[in-house]
Design a protein around this nucleic acid. Structure first.
Lengths: 212, 212
DNA sequence: TAGATTGTTAATCGATTAACAATC
DNA sequence: TAGATTGTTAATCGATTAACAATC
């Protein structure tokens, strides 16, 4: 359904369209042309029209795009109208921050449980969640129809935990562990690698320094 | 110096080379061919050779690459041998997690101070840092040769804080605020947008669901 | 020396941009 | 209707892959 093999380059621009359209909406702007949008979002008008037309003809000749309708449609394309049940594994600093992250709601993700392997953490509370023992991940995931796991553990244990998650039925992983997980091809992994981002910043700073 | 206009695609692969080479090093592997590396890292051998040759001829015909030397060279290319002085702005959940993030050391980034605008936070301690009042950002940054800021605040105040940072001398921003900051062209901004990452995961999950 | 593997040029592929007929 | 702007095809640009001579 839907798909006609959209490239990742296009997919990664969709959230940005969604964000800018939400902003326009909050400023009560009702219509926008690809040219106007191009000026605020920084893509070419041509690229905007190409991108959107991968998913349908949302615009109208001579008029442009209806902001509200386009925002809603992109939300649907992104699957934001769907509900996913998630667990968070690794209740360290980052795990705690993500447990409190308000963005999950907009994406339709609901955290059903938080796990940690450290006995000192088990039983403690983060928000409404009592931290559970990582030994119980498999039974919890299979008994609670969990779709997605948020992985915030050090790289050493990460592959083993991912294996347990996948074998218990998880179909997607938001991976903060600095490792390329090996999973079956049908399982989706979205990586957030802070080190890679930081190193990229370091490279760009160095180049900028050397320019002088 | 150095540069001959390297594309971002290449730059973003460098940290991954660095990480895999560190791993090989920890396993006492001393040499590797582009073909072998291609099998573990998942890029083509051709791409690996192209990428590396942007920066110099690090290999040797008939032998391959010396793991230790290549790792060291890529570290230098990434600027990991340089020291940068940083401040962290926004001591909420994410800011606290990043204050404790061990990865800064490897990148040569040192956090010199942590700021927050919330009066209830000011004076509290995170690790060794006593949280300072955001009102003091400008004087601190200009008096302490700060190069980089880590921005972990909500999107509403983010542009104003970025303006203050830049006018006080910050040349790079690791930006976690979900907004595209406007800064002078010589200032480097590296974005980590969790919402965009999460929405991408949502899209891929939806597509995967609909495949069935 | 013979075999292996790089560095580098050429070919291919995919993504972006330009152009314009269709149409609101 | 005339003007504006889309949807879409064609042209361009850039990145990846293939090929192979150079060389260790």
């Amino acid at each position: 359904m839907g798909n006609k093999n959209i490239s990742m380059a296009v997919i990664r621009r969709l959230p940005k369209y969604y964000r800018y359209l939400a902003d326009l909406l909050s400023r009560d702007i009702q219509r926008i042309s690809s040219k106007e949008l191009s000026e605020i979002i920084g893509f070419t008008a041509s690229q905007i029209r190409q991108d959107l037309n991968n998913f349908g003809g949302f615009g109208q000749q001579g008029y442009g795009y209806n902001v509200e309708a386009l925002h809603r449609e992109i939300g649907k394309i992104l699957g934001l109208d769907r509900k996913y049940r998630a667990v968070l594994v690794g209740a360290g600093n980052l795990g705690q921050a993500l447990t409190n992250y308000s963005g999950f709601k907009n994406a339709g993700f609901n955290i059903e449980a938080v796990f940690d392997a450290n006995p000192k953490m088990i039983g403690l509370k983060i928000r409404d969640y009592e931290i559970m023992d990582s030994d119980n991940i498999e039974s919890f995931v299979s008994n609670n129809d969990i779709d997605i796991a948020i992985l915030c553990i050090p790289k050493n244990g990460a592959q083993a935990v991912a294996d347990k998650l996948v074998s218990s039925g998880v179909r997607g992983i938001w991976n903060f562990a600095p490792i390329d997980l090996e999973v079956p091809s049908e399982v989706i992994v979205e990586n957030v690698n802070l080190t890679e981002s930081l190193f990229t910043l370091s490279y760009l700073m160095k180049e900028s320094d050397d320019q002088l």
